[in-house]
Design a protein around this nucleic acid. Structure first.
Lengths: 250, 250
DNA sequence: CCATACTGCGTACCTGCTACGCTATTTAGC
DNA sequence: GCTAAATAGCGTAGCAGGTACGCAGTATGG
């Protein structure tokens, strides 16, 4: 059996466990457990709300029953993070790489938006789950016609993933902080102004004076704009890289 | 007293508490507590190793004594994350923005490398501590001569921070995973090859076939190269943005 | 029909955060 | 000086959470 050589969590993610023959029928399935955990995290918006006890309670089982299906809580997290990303929609036909990657990035954003805890799952290894790989595959396919070497494509996509996830993490953490204490955010500019000495922080002081931190727009708008702005910059960089290294073609 | 209107954690970070007049002399200082917490996290490389009990033990005090200086553990985290970043070195004189931002990014990288837990501190608000602001100021000052609007500078710097922190987070998490289970990483390519169906993941299959996941280089080298690669792409994008929007000069 | 393998679960242990209230200590104000 | 107020340290205890262990019950292969 080849499966035996696979790491346990990878085997679980791909559902490669051979079905056991003896013993009672399981009253729980792995999918139920993962779905329940995701539901809890979604409702609370916080990974911290997921406890083994709560997951079990939601399924009408005891806490320890879960451990027949999952090795540990971290294991469950890995499963959650792959299951949370549903399969991506395919790229529109015949688009150039930039349109493709923009489509992809926005798809990732909408997918993760449904699961605000996603970016907080501790990364335990390179992407290895079926859904994560599907997204990875899609991004790579967008670069198909650029003439970049495979390794360069991977680099570009990894960088983009890093950027998107970082942006998402910051945005959601800030949004959570905002919900918790809106006053602190609305006063952010005022607070900085009080505490920042222009002789020590001249550039920050200029920014404050220009009213950048005045918080006139809503949070959602703000983070959407930040995302688009950063994405544009990154893609401009990719374009420059392709011009420099790749074969021009399309 | 203006301080009263400041959020508690901000006041703490800037050490704005007015010194009390009555009562016993404190045997602990806030700096001691933060330093001890940082030392623990550094030694273990994991934020999870920081418990109030352990911090107190290291200081020869009881757990609850800490709560006279810090409102909660999250409070302590915020303090830690500002204290961990020491003051940045100033930029070399007369450098252009690109050299400046590269210098800056590498500075951030070395600063965070000493504190592998840094990128895991939950973000509770926009940067407001003295050290974080110093880094922020430095990055903004690198863009001084670009003619960008203040808001655009902030956008560029925020994007860069997001990218750098994201990259660092991934790199350290992977490194930790690697230390824990090196075999799984060395076999990553082989595992993928076993599990990836070329019809479902054609682009990933091509990457695997090209041997990109073969893991011939060391981990350190690999993540350094990734960092530099992504940074280059981002800065190329910034250059394009400046060409498009900014006043050319310098 | 029994041995086997497997599921669910109760119990218990450990770690961790922190509210509460007591005691000791220092000083402001008289 | 003396007293009252304010403050530091800390012991206790409550609560939540992860999970090792072993028992009881169940389905199946021989």
């Amino acid at each position: 059996m080849e499966n035996n050589e696979l790491p346990a969590d990878v085997a679980l993610m791909w559902r490669l466990r051979e079905t056991p023959r003896r013993g009672p029928k399981p009253s729980l399935t792995l999918d139920d457990i993962v779905a329940a955990a995701i539901a809890i995290a979604d409702e609370d918006g916080d990974l911290g709300a997921v406890s083994m006890a709560r997951v079990a309670e939601r399924l009408g089982n005891s806490t320890m029953a879960l451990y027949r299906h999952v090795k540990s809580k971290d294991d469950l997290f890995v499963l959650m993070s792959d299951a949370a990303l549903e399969r991506p929609e395919p790229l529109p036909d015949g688009v150039d790489w930039r349109t493709g990657l923009t489509f992809w990035a926005n798809g990732v954003l909408t997918a993760i938006r449904k699961h605000r805890w996603y970016a907080k799952v501790p990364i335990s290894g390179p992407p290895a789950g079926p859904n994560n790989l599907a997204w990875f595959d899609l991004a790579l396919s967008a670069l198909e016609d650029t003439g970049l070497a495979e390794e360069a494509k991977v680099g570009v996509v990894m960088g983009l993933i890093t950027y998107v996830q970082g942006e998402v993490r910051v945005a959601f953490d800030l949004a959570a902080g905002f919900d918790e204490n809106p006053a602190a955010f609305q006063q952010y500019g005022a607070i900085l102004a009080r505490v920042v000495d222009p002789r020590v922080y001249p550039s920050v002081a200029k920014v404050i004076a220009a009213g950048v931190f005045a918080m006139d727009t809503s949070f959602e708008e703000d983070s959407d704009a930040d995302f688009a702005f950063g994405l544009q910059i990154y893609l401009d960089g990719v374009a420059a890289f392709i011009d420099r290294v790749g074969v021009k073609g399309g």
